[in-house]
């Protein structure tokens, strides 16, 4: 029987899953992804974490618990930096240790460092370390790494050409009656159907086309983020703000929804930056939502509804003005 590695469906899984899964498969290692978020899974995570943790981290612990007894290894990379001279939120760095110290009876954890901060560092180093858990054959690791990189590149291109990840692609109607809504938020929040309360599906069901930071090539997002008065060195938030700049300036985008997660430090200032800088005088409607563990669905639905009414209304006005 082949070795089974468990990957929590949480945090940066949403960026890197094609690469991770391909890499392990090429090494002949089976992967098991935790089930989709449910109330029960989130509750388990909430019970096992300290109050200070942000919602996505608590949720990720729930996903770890879901895998714990079903796998030979847990894959919890210690992600320090995903781009040169930038960091990502320190909670990613601490995540493997937090898990180790709060959860008992864990299988062995693969927590190699992923750190591209310094010049000359490459993601290959990380995959090499991971590969060594399973094979001594460096050639095999290199091949797996190359394949995994290709898988990620392809995935990113797919996203840019409007295939939202996984199930989202198939959901909702493609008929958008011309309304485009940009959703700005952490991927592990906006693509998680449970904590986002199906926001993407709801928007699509009501006839809007949904755009996210992942529809934009990395280069565009970065370039836009340079317009900030000062460089943000948190990669994900930089991405969010960059995407917000871009979508605010795009005529075919009719509204922007900023989704913050409860307890997230970086979000509190990206929200402000988006409102103050990215808006840049534009009067495009923007809705700010915060998801937490006990948000009622009703409140969010009311806000989304009102927001869409407003966007449609404005659009009709604009159409009317254009035909005058």
């Amino acid at each position: 029987m082949s070795i089974k590695v468990g990957i929590p469906r949480a945090l940066l899984y949403y960026y890197y899953h094609p690469q991770w899964v391909t890499f392990f498969r090429r090494l002949g290692v089976e992967t098991l992804i935790s089930q989709k978020t449910t109330r029960g899974l989130l509750d388990k995570g909430l019970k096992s974490t300290v109050d200070e943790a942000c919602l996505p981290v608590k949720l990720a612990v729930g996903h770890v618990l879901d895998l714990r007894d079903r796998v030979d290894y847990l894959f919890l990379p210690r992600i320090v930096s995903t781009a040169r001279k930038e960091y990502i939120c320190p909670k990613f760095l601490g995540f493997p240790d937090m898990v180790r110290h709060t959860i008992n009876n864990l299988p062995p954890i693969i927590d190699c460092n992923f750190n591209l901060y310094h010049k000359g560092s490459s993601s290959a180093d990380f995959y090499f370390q991971v590969g060594k858990f399973f094979t001594r054959n460096p050639a095999k690791i290199i091949m797996a790494y190359n394949a995994s990189k290709a898988a990620l590149d392809k995935h990113n291109l797919d996203m840019q050409s409007d295939c939202l990840p996984q199930e989202h692609a198939a959901e909702g109607s493609a008929d958008s009656n011309g309304i485009n809504i940009a959703v700005i938020g952490h991927p592990y929040v906006i693509y998680d159907n449970y904590i986002s309360m199906n926001m993407i599906k709801r928007l699509r069901d009501s006839g809007a086309r949904v755009l996210t930071a992942d529809h934009l090539p990395e280069s565009v997002v970065r370039e836009e983020a340079y317009r900030l008065p000062k460089k943000l060195f948190w990669t994900i938030n930089q991405r969010m703000v960059g995407a917000a700049y871009h979508y605010f300036s795009r005529e075919d985008v009719h509204g922007i929804i900023h989704v913050a997660s409860f307890g997230c430090g970086p979000d509190s200032f990206t929200g402000e930056l988006t409102e103050r800088c990215a808006r840049n005088g534009s009067n495009k409607p923007m809705l700010s939502l915060t998801v937490d563990e006990h948000t009622g669905e009703a409140g969010m639905v009311t806000r989304l509804e009102a927001f869409l009414d407003m966007v449609r209304w404005r659009r009709n006005m604009a159409d009317a003005a254009a035909t005058l």
Binding site: N283, P285, G299, T302, D309, W313, R314, M317
Partner: peptide, 13 residues
Amino acid sequence: LRNGVVSDFAMNT
């Protein structure tokens, strides 16, 4: 509202 259309809103609950 601007030009007769809702352009922004906020709620406190």
